[in-house]
Amino acid sequence: MIGVLKGLVQTWKTHWRKPVTVQYPDERLPLQPRYMGFPGLIWDQAIGEPFCTGCQVCMRYCPTQCMYVTMQDNPKQAAGESKRRKIVETFTIDISRCISCAICVEVCNFDAIEMTHAHERAGYYPDVVPDLPQLLKMSEDFRAQRGQKPARETRDVL
């Protein structure tokens, strides 16, 4: 009986502690800076084209084969604006299959892909298969948010 009472005292004490639960859709804990969501493609501001050349190395190493990439000749190179001879033509990532392992980031030879904080992407096809402009936007949004504080500060409990 004493053991049960000891447990009761413990639960009684805990009753007066600050709760640690966060009411999720209304308030959110901030993501860690290193958080790996889904990958996005980086835009080369200086030239005005993606860093990605469509070399397909990420596609080859993707463990779930969720990417599809094609390459084309860079029209800007012909015009003398860019040094990249080849550029990405299409780039799709099936987010419903992506496991956010960041292997694509690791193998990329041009640092053209990065893990954004995008993670709430549940939906139907084809919403879960972003194409090149959407992937570029994901990275752009991520970079725009990054320096800023999260919308709502967490309670200092965890």
Binding site: G7, T14, Q32, P33, R34, Y35, M36, S100, A102
Partner: peptide, 29 residues
């Protein structure tokens, strides 16, 4: 049921640490 809630309260502190280290809560890589 109560021990489950206690254990997960403690576990969550460490899970957040792991997230700050590796960027993922479970599959760290």
């Amino acid at each position: 049921i109560t021990p489950f809630l206690y254990a997960f309260r403690e576990r969550e502190r460490l899970q957040r640490l792991f997230e700050s280290v590796s960027g993922a809560r479970l599959m760290h890589f």
